[in-house]
Nucleic acid binder design. Structure first.
Lengths: 131, 131
DNA sequence: GACTTGCTGCTACAAGTGTGGTAGTTACTG
DNA sequence: CAGTAACTACCACACTTGTAGCAGCAAGTC
């Protein structure tokens, strides 16, 4: 599932709240984007068309919920970046991250912590069931 | 500098050879893409327009060379991914990489190695505790 | 010098994307 | 119940992206 920039902005809001109506999404992104209400609606319709959202009519309005998980979308975004920009090679990607991107030491610590945590034996995160 | 998928394919070839004419690019990507010669030309023209390539006429043909570095392009691609899909937060990105992407243990080792190599925590002399 | 071949600069055109307007419809408010 | 506010579905339109055709010009061939 490939999402456009605008679609990410919308999906991020819906994922965060687990479900949302158009106006909520608008309010959440308005500051950054300056979109009109109808713009949000259009983007959301397209997301329904492409199977990323499902809308359920409740009275007058439509409540949207995600049909794809954030992790799923993230995976394919990462995959796609790796393929087009890093020859699909994880190694060159990591190399890039560590040498080219300016990581704050906080970032680096985070990275370490996670590695360490993962190191002894892949500990399942406590939040297990996520397809 | 934001590149499209087709543009990445072309730029990758040019970066690899440091310079290339259209036909070389075509030959390099033909297998994967099945593009026509003119398709390559069009993409390359657009790359010139947006300042990613410069073309220098040599006799009949045009030799292209990159105006932007691969690292530069990669940086902005990574940045863009982080922003749209990970709230711009490096932390959640790393978390994703470690929990969601299937890293081979080789990948993980690589990640560790580089991290260690870059480690700011200096086991160096404690005299210069600055960077 | 006339031909052939390959390269170039335009032009095209459909699908995807960003952005939003309109009009009809539902539901609250007095 | 009439008026207003809020929603929805549909339409519009410019710009980008993928993909390529065409016609003219340069260069090697006999």
């Amino acid at each position: 599932m490939k999402l456009t920039e605008a679609e990410w902005a919308v999906m991020n809001v819906v994922w965060e709240r687990r479900s949302a109506v158009a106006r909520e999404v608008l309010e959440a992104v308005e500051g950054r984007t300056g979109w009109a209400y109808t713009t949000v609606k259009t983007v959301m319709s397209r997301l329904v068309d492409k199977g990323a959202l499902k809308g359920r009519k409740r009275g007058n309005t439509v409540v949207f919920e995600p049909l794809i998980s954030r992790e799923q979308a993230r995976r394919s975004a990462v995959r796609s970046l790796l393929d087009r920009a890093f020859d699909g090679a994880f190694g060159s990607f990591v190399q890039h991250m560590l040498t080219q991107e300016k990581l704050s030491s906080k970032d680096r610590l985070e990275l370490e912590r996670m590695l360490a945590e993962l190191e002894p034996r892949p500990p399942r995160s406590r939040k297990e069931a996520s397809r």
